[in-house]
């Protein structure tokens, strides 16, 4: 049994310690907001916060998340009250929406660390893939979220 802290709650899961955190969240804890895209930490669909740091969980063994505060998209708010969610709605960012949990978690971590990021800082921090091509609106939403902090 492995014990982890997810969205403020201790959760015990019966998985092999090398199981990636992504699959623990999705298949064991049914937190399906965090998505699977590539399995090799290239696309960022699986991004969550580990002690506040945006982390790709498809290659992160659950054993390495023990003792850390894990926060998923579900922790932002279920009623879209978080400023990044609000910014995403105001800019009408999502199309298919599949990558957006990861985009939002990456953007939230960026804004927490860098309250008013420049375009260059956004380019550097936001390396998540979006096949619908919502990049321009993601950028606008990050600037909006920064302005409303």
């Amino acid at each position: 049994m492995i014990s982890i802290i997810v969205n403020g709650e201790q959760r015990d899961v019966d998985v092999a310690p090398d199981t990636p955190l992504l699959w623990v969240l999705r298949d064991e804890l049914n937190l399906t907001g965090t998505k699977f895209g590539c399995g090799v930490a290239q696309c960022g669909c699986c991004t969550v916060h580990l002690d506040g740091v945006a982390t790709r969980t498809c290659v992160l063994p659950v054993s390495q998340a023990v003792g850390k505060q894990i926060h998923t998209v579900e922790s932002l708010s279920s009623d879209n009250a978080h400023r990044v969610q609000k910014a995403w709605i105001a800019e009408q960012v999502p199309q298919c929406g599949y990558c957006q949990s990861g985009q939002i978690m990456a953007a939230t971590a960026l804004l927490n660390k860098t309250p008013h990021p420049t375009d260059a800082q956004i380019d550097q921090a936001m390396t998540n893939i979006c096949r619908c091509g919502t990049y321009g609106r993601i950028r606008a939403a990050i600037h909006r979220g920064a302005a409303e902090a």
Partner: peptide
Amino acid sequence: RIDVPNKVNGKSVFGI
């Protein structure tokens, strides 16, 4: 968009 609110909080249900 009607589908956007649930696409910013992880609630939208995709096939996966």
